[in-house]
């Protein structure tokens, strides 16, 4: 009989045990829930960019940049993956273009721009002496030109313009940022131009998170 009692006790224990997981499995979720879990940040984690706006957060664009205050986006195209306008009537334009193969190298491109501004070609040595500027992590040359601007495909030149731009080569690809507009407007927007050029980068998903 004693044996029977000990068995019975064991049986009760096991029956209770079997109910235990059932009761713990259901967690009631109400209208309001307190946040209790925390996690330690690792020193190896990439620091996030604060105050990123929706475009930066969601666009699967390989390019990321900041549009300076007062500037607006114009229609983007294959030739102009970033296309911005500024000025009271959008007289000023600033865009990024990329050409595979570098379209003839830095010297040829500097001289192409000089030609568009109605200026004579520069020899190679003088191009090499131009100020340097970093574009998307690559060192390029910084060009400032004044004169009458003849846009590609346009017959007439617009007088009293300023062209400001950076030419860099990423492997086989030539990278150009070019800002053109009435001289005064361009001068006034030089800080904005600098902000844009500095913010410009290729987005590579950082390790972790994605």
């Amino acid at each position: 009989m004693n044996e029977f009692h000990s068995r019975r006790r064991l049986a009760v224990v096991f029956c209770c045990l079997s109910v235990l997981p059932f009761s713990s499995a259901c967690k009631r979720l109400g209208e309001r829930v307190e946040i209790t879990e925390t996690r330690e940040i690792s020193q190896y984690e990439a620091e996030p960019k604060l105050f990123a706006y929706s475009q930066q957060r969601f666009s699967n664009d390989p390019l990321s940049w900041e549009t300076p205050a007062g500037w607006v986006q114009a229609e983007r195209s294959q030739m102009r993956p970033i296309n911005l306008r500024f000025g009271p009537n959008g007289e000023g334009e600033c865009y990024l273009s990329m050409l595979p193969g570098g379209a003839g190298g830095t010297v040829a491109n500097v001289n192409r721009w000089r030609k568009q501004m109605g200026q004579a070609e520069l020899p190679e040595a003088e191009v090499a002496a131009l100020p340097k500027r970093v574009l998307m992590g690559i060192e390029g040359v910084f060009v400032t030109l004044d004169g009458s601007y003849t846009n590609v495909g346009s017959a007439e030149a617009t007088a009293d313009q300023r062209l400001m731009g950076v030419i860099a080569a990423l492997g086989e690809v030539g990278l150009f940022v070019k800002m053109v507009g009435p001289k005064e407007l361009v001068v006034a927007n030089e800080p904005a131009f600098n902000q844009f050029v500095e913010s410009l980068r290729l987005r590579l998903p950082q390790g972790g998170g994605k």
């Binding site: 979720l29 309001r32 829930v33 307190e34 946040i35 925390t38 996690r39 940040i41």
Partner: peptide
């Protein structure tokens, strides 16, 4: 200064995975 804290709060998936459009829940700390 833009310096992040060493820990971060976490809301586990079990607490929000049922919140299909039309359902909502408030989280506080």
């Amino acid at each position: 200064e833009g310096k992040g804290e060493a820990t971060t709060l976490m809301i586990p998936m079990e607490d929000f995975m049922d919140l299909e459009p039309g359902k909502a829940r408030t989280f506080y700390s």
